[in-house]
């Protein structure tokens, strides 16, 4: 058997990937599944408890707070992020726009900062009394917005703050996708629509949207999966706490707290597997609703 034969080659090519994947993803994942049926504590204490962790999870109010927060975050991020970035992309896509590349870079540049460094920066920007966020709002509301507003220590402001940073980081990123997709829409279709007398809205609904549907779905699914894994942003912004009244507690943070603050890796694993299940369901639902799983769209 020749290693270079077309029959064998794909397996050879996939081998390094497969080996690392099995050892560093599949095996730990399997271990964590086993762990999720135990309660662990300290060095080497591990008690098999069957499905008790999962049963407790269903009635654990904190877990549901985390689920609610995570869903809120994902929902609001998507509801603002997708239209905003699509809007920016549509505007930028206009012909003869002055400084287009500069503007595009301006929107995209926050993404280059990355989550961790952005969190460090925003702990200062959200500070009461001198934070830039308050200063900006103070200026544009002509002084009605209080400089003493404490973004990160008032329960009702934490989620808006998280969504804000998230938008800052990712609007430009999804905008790039939309921009590329828009450039891929056949210009003749617009012409045809124009000839048919379609207004801008009709053109958007009938030509643009169908033309970029795949990208919209892609962005929504990727953002959803990313949103469900929200951890570093609130963890760093809220200085390693779930925030006032647990307003910044997310599912992954709850997992982390249980596993690495309380030391119950078993329960943490159960949370992880529940999260996995949730993410899977939501993404599958999104794909299903959008018809991306239909036969003709596969492969």
């Amino acid at each position: 058997m020749k290693l270079n034969a077309p029959k064998v080659a794909p397996y050879v090519f996939l081998t390094p990937f497969a080996v690392i994947f099995s050892v560093f993803i599949a095996w730990p994942l399997f271990r964590s599944l086993l762990l999720s049926f135990t309660i662990t504590s300290g060095p080497g204490a591990q008690v098999f408890v069957g499905t008790a962790n999962y049963r407790f999870l269903l009635q654990d109010p904190d877990f549901w707070i985390a689920v609610r927060n995570t869903f809120t975050f994902v929902l609001f991020s998507l509801l603002i992020q997708v239209p905003l970035s699509l809007g920016l992309a549509l505007f930028l896509n206009r012909k003869g726009l002055w400084m287009r590349n500069t503007l595009r870079f301006a929107f995209f540049s926050p993404h280059l900062m990355g989550l961790v460094f952005a969190s460090i920066l925003f702990t200062l920007l959200f500070a009461p009394r001198f934070g830039l966020v308050n200063e900006g709002l103070h200026t544009i509301t002509f002084g009605r917005w209080s400089m003493d507003t404490r973004w990160l220590s008032e329960a009702r402001r934490v989620m808006p703050a998280l969504v804000m940073v998230n938008l800052w980081l990712y609007v430009g990123y999804s905008m790039i996708y939309f921009l590329a997709a828009l450039q891929g829409v056949d210009p003749q279709l617009y012409e045809a629509a124009r000839v048919d007398g379609a207004g801008p809205l009709a053109r958007f609904l009938n030509v643009t949207l169908p033309g970029i549907r795949h990208v919209v779905i892609f962005v929504v699914v990727i953002s959803t999966i990313g949103g469900f894994q929200l951890f570093e942003l609130p963890w760093l912004l809220l200085s390693n706490t779930p925030g006032p009244e647990k307003s910044g507690l997310t599912i992954v943070m709850y997992l982390y707290q249980n596993g690495f603050v309380s030391g119950d890796l078993g329960y943490a694993s159960a949370i992880g597997w529940t999260l996995l299940f949730l993410v899977f369901c939501v993404s599958a639902l999104q794909l299903k609703l959008s018809g991306a799983l239909r036969k003709e769209n596969m492969a």
């Binding site: 397996y11 095996w27 762990l35 894994q229 596993g259 992880g272 996995l276």
Partner: peptide, 28 residues
């Protein structure tokens, strides 16, 4: 290439993209 197990592998990869990394922190 077309090879045996391709579809299964694709599905596995798709699913694995949804794994929240912290699940594996302790076993890793």
């Amino acid at each position: 290439y077309r090879f045996r197990g391709q579809q299964g592998l694709m599905l596995l990869l798709l699913v694995s993209m949804m794994i929240p990394a912290p699940v594996m922190l302790a076993p890793l």
